[in-house]
């Protein structure tokens, strides 16, 4: 392989650095009806938990300026039903597939990761950062101690490449990233959604039954980019940049800031074919700037 856009991330070949983010692309089936998703570098599955989850009650989406809030609450079929009904489809696709795993306690994380790790998946993305599970339940990725604990235990059972997805709400995201590296994570992805709040002023009530919800979209991009830049300087393992990317210029910013690849989430909702468009635009950019492979620009801004 020697295309303009192909990259090697943890010894996995990606056709390009454009990967669809967890929770915004299902398991790929729906968008596969809309365009040829095999043009993408990869896709990340919806967040999976050991047992099935029905998700949160009440309103699940709220529009904000240049973004949206979601309170899906990790609705998913559970790891076993996923393995039976969805994984074969993901594995049949000619692109890298990454399985996103969540949990509410250590034991569930380890069991779910153990199960999926035996299925020869390309990579596991460990989600220690979902703000949408129970109001008073602090995600593992906020505190150093819980981060260390979950990455250490999961690492013991995961034989495939392990990427840990960080929360922007972390006490100190650089410290958290370093701890992931120390405990054996192969890569880091950042960021997940920000914990956020909205009020219906007419009814004087909160919008979301679960009180807080996750903020995503272009409004978070500058902060996500700053975090990627900071973390990239402090760890040696590769990074996937996530947060508010909607066009090829945004992708270039994340790569120049030090990410080896990017994930695109909310932008899929604005234009379902955004992945296809960004890939074409990136190609044109490289050609007109005489760059022979996209990896040449990674981390060039310090």
């Amino acid at each position: 392989m020697s295309g303009l856009l192909d990259i090697n991330f943890l010894e996995i070949n990606f056709k390009n650095p454009i990967i669809m983010a967890s929770g915004t692309f299902g398991f790929g089936r729906e968008y596969a009806e809309i365009y040829d998703i095999e043009k993408l570098g990869g896709i990340v599955s919806k967040g999976l938990t050991l047992n099935p989850r029905r998700g949160n009650q009440g309103i699940r989406v709220w529009e904000t300026s240049s973004g949206m809030m979601n309170s899906v609450g990790l609705e998913n079929p559970g790891i076993q039903a996923f393995i039976e009904n969805e994984l074969p489809f993901m594995q049949s696709l000619n692109l890298a597939h990454i399985i996103n795993i969540s949990g509410t306690n250590l034991e569930d994380y380890v069991k779910a990761c153990h199960k999926i790790s035996r299925k020869k998946v390309d990579m596991i993305e460990l989600n220690i950062s979902c703000p949408n599970v129970q109001e008073n339940n602090i995600p593992f990725g906020i505190k150093e101690t819980t981060t260390r604990e979950v990455v250490k235990e999961v690492r013991k059972v995961v034989k495939v490449p392990l990427m840990v997805k960080l929360s922007p709400d972390a006490d100190d995201i650089i410290r958290i990233a370093r701890i992931c590296e120390e405990e054996g994570a192969d890569a880091i992805s950042l960021i997940n959604t920000f914990k956020a709040f909205a009020i219906n002023i007419n009814e004087k009530k909160k919008i979301f039954e679960n009180t807080f919800a996750g903020l995503s979209g272009p409004c978070i991009k500058p902060i996500a980019l700053r975090m990627v830049h900071e973390v990239a300087k402090q760890v040696k393992i590769p990074i996937m940049g996530i947060g508010g990317i909607v066009n090829y210029q945004d992708v270039l910013e994340f790569l120049m800031a030090g990410a080896q690849a990017v994930q695109i989430g909310t932008a899929n909702f604005i234009n379902p074919k955004v992945g296809e468009i960004i890939i074409k635009d990136l190609e044109n950019y490289l050609i007109s700037n005489d760059i022979s492979n996209i990896s040449e620009i990674i981390g060039i801004v310090d």
């Binding site: 809309i34 919806k46 998700g55």
Partner: peptide, 21 residues
């Protein structure tokens, strides 16, 4: 229902039915 993706990928428009979500 309020929607985001409109295509079945994001699960913000889930409703409860006799046959599950």
């Amino acid at each position: 229902k309020r929607m985001a993706c409109g295509v079945g990928a994001c699960l913000v428009c889930t409703c409860q039915t006799k046959n599950g979500n």
